[in-house]
Simulated assay, not measured.
Amino acid sequence: MHSHDSVPVPVKRLPHFEGLELPAYATDGAAGMDVLAAEDVTLAPGARHAVATGLAVAIPHGFEIQVRPRSGLALKHGISVPNAPGTIDSDYRGEVKVILINHGAEPFDVRRGDRIAQLVLAPVTRANWLKIDELDETARGEGGFGSTGGVFALGS
């Protein structure tokens, strides 16, 4: 990792973070950092919980941190982030929490120190609305959900 490839993000470790590791990239090519749980919680099937990480951050202006599910937990246990990707805004200074949901059939134990999600630092482009009366025409036009192809009933 070269210094010009990374953006410094100030991080405050809260008392219940004690003894845990900061979020880290598992490999050189990883886009996301694995973040750890700072508490124990059991998620019943269908249940949601905002899992503490013990960290607060000061994300630089012009960036966000996206909170994404871990693919292994999703595949093996049905554990996901219900608002994926969640967003941590650059002006938020509270504790980073990861909302987890159990889509599986069995209760799932989250233990302090478990890798629960991925954090991706990403640039933000802000929009400003340009009010007009008509939009430009495209081949797709106003076709909505599923309009660009998919499964068609036999005989249609």
Rank of each mutant, 00 (worst) to 15 (best):
G62R: 04
K12T: 15
V124F: 01
G54K: 03
D109N: 15
G150P: 04
V98T: 01
P82V: 11
I79N: 00
A105L: 12
G94K: 10
V110W: 04
G19P: 07
A26R: 13
R140E: 07
G46I: 07
D133W: 00
G141A: 04
A74W: 13
E18D: 15
G113H: 01
D114F: 01
E95M: 09
Q66C: 07
E39R: 03
L119P: 00
E64Y: 03
V41R: 13
I59H: 01
A24R: 13
F63I: 07
R126C: 10
A139C: 10
A52W: 10
H61T: 15
N83P: 12
D91H: 12
V124E: 01
R140F: 05
Y25R: 02
N128W: 12
G149A: 10
A117F: 02
T53D: 05
G143D: 13
F152R: 09
M33N: 04
K12D: 14
A139P: 14
F145D: 02
G54H: 01
L20T: 08
S147T: 15
L43D: 02
R111L: 07
F17V: 07
V81K: 01
I132D: 09
N83W: 13
G78A: 02
R112V: 05
A153Y: 09
A153T: 12
L75W: 12
T125L: 08
G29C: 08
T27L: 02
N128Q: 14
F63Q: 06
T42Q: 06
G86V: 05
G29E: 15
S147F: 10
A50M: 14
G19F: 07
V124L: 05
P45T: 00
P15I: 13
L43T: 08
P10A: 09
S80E: 00
P10I: 12
V51P: 00
T87S: 15
L36Q: 07
L55I: 15
S90L: 04
R70Y: 04
V51Y: 01
P10M: 08
G54N: 00
F152I: 12
D114T: 07
T53C: 07
L55S: 05
G144Y: 09
D34W: 03
V35K: 04
P123K: 11
V151S: 00
V96Q: 02
V98E: 00
E39I: 06
E64N: 10
A122F: 06
V120S: 00
N102A: 04
I116N: 03
H77S: 11
S71D: 12
L154R: 15
V120Y: 02
I59P: 03
G143Y: 14
R48C: 14
F145S: 09
A127N: 14
H61N: 11
A37G: 04
V81D: 04
A127G: 11
I101F: 02
L100Y: 08
L36P: 03
A127C: 13
P107C: 06
R115T: 07
R111Y: 09
H77L: 08
E64I: 06
P60E: 07
P8N: 09
S156W: 10
I99T: 13
V7D: 05
H49G: 07
E18Q: 14
L36M: 10
P85I: 00
W129S: 14
S71Y: 12
F145W: 10
A30L: 06
V7T: 11
V67H: 03
A122L: 06
G54I: 01
Y92P: 03
D109W: 11
L55T: 12
E95R: 09
P69R: 05
F145H: 10
G150T: 06
H49P: 03
H16M: 05
P15C: 11
W129Q: 14
L36R: 08
